[in-house]
């Protein structure tokens, strides 16, 4: 039963074209290792250099957004101070394109601003996104955002289609947020 169950689980992921899926506590070390494996996998498949770079860049920005903004965090001291953020990153292919999906819990109070930023980017064409990126590059970081805006613009800039996103309310204090980018 055990093998049957997990074979079916793996089969389901494979059917969806998933190359990697990580769910759980994300750290900088995990980001590095997954990113490295992702680049190697794409290189082995002779993916062109430009596409590898775009997919990698979107992956890094999404994973760093989880590390920074996930509302599900544990922290403490294990000889050194550690903070881990929970979330999910999934990378796969469909219709001859790569897709990268990230998901994490966000505080309800952060939802309006995040939604507003993403809606603004969805309405922009490539030239407008590029100009917006340059404008943000010169701006001092917004309070408490630790560079969120420019990270989202970088993602939009590498994407082949407008970013898709959604929020699913969990309770009064939180939403399950997810974002999908195609390249």
């Amino acid at each position: 039963m055990l093998a049957k169950y997990f074979r079916s689980f793996k089969h389901d992921l494979d059917q969806r074209g998933i190359i990697f899926s990580f769910s759980g506590y994300m750290s900088e070390g995990i980001l590095y290792s997954l990113g490295d494996a992702l680049r190697q996998k794409m290189a082995l498949e002779d993916t062109d250099v430009g596409t590898v770079k775009k997919v990698f860049s979107v992956f890094v920005e999404q994973a760093q957004n989880i590390i920074r903004y996930s509302a599900e965090k544990v922290s403490g001291d294990v000889g050194k101070s550690v903070e881990l953020s929970s979330g999910m990153v999934t990378i796969g292919t469909e219709n001859n394109r790569f897709f990268i999906v990230c998901a994490n819990v966000v505080h309800a109070s952060d939802e309006p601003k995040l939604r507003q930023r993403l809606e603004k980017l969805q309405k922009m064409d490539k030239e407008a996104i590029k100009a917006y990126y340059k404008e943000q590059l010169r701006e001092a970081p917004e309070e408490q955002s630790r560079g969120a805006t420019i990270g989202l613009i970088e993602i939009a800039r590498r994407a082949s289609e407008p970013i898709e996103f959604d929020f699913d309310r969990i309770d009064a204090e939180s939403f399950f947020f997810c974002m999908k980018v195609s390249i």
């Binding site: 770079k53 920005e61 760093q64 590059l137 970081p141 560079g147 420019i150 990270g151 970088e154």
Partner: peptide, 8 residues
């Protein structure tokens, strides 16, 4: 390669 916070 550099990420967006390095670009800033």
């Amino acid at each position: 390669y550099f990420n967006s916070s390095s670009a800033k």
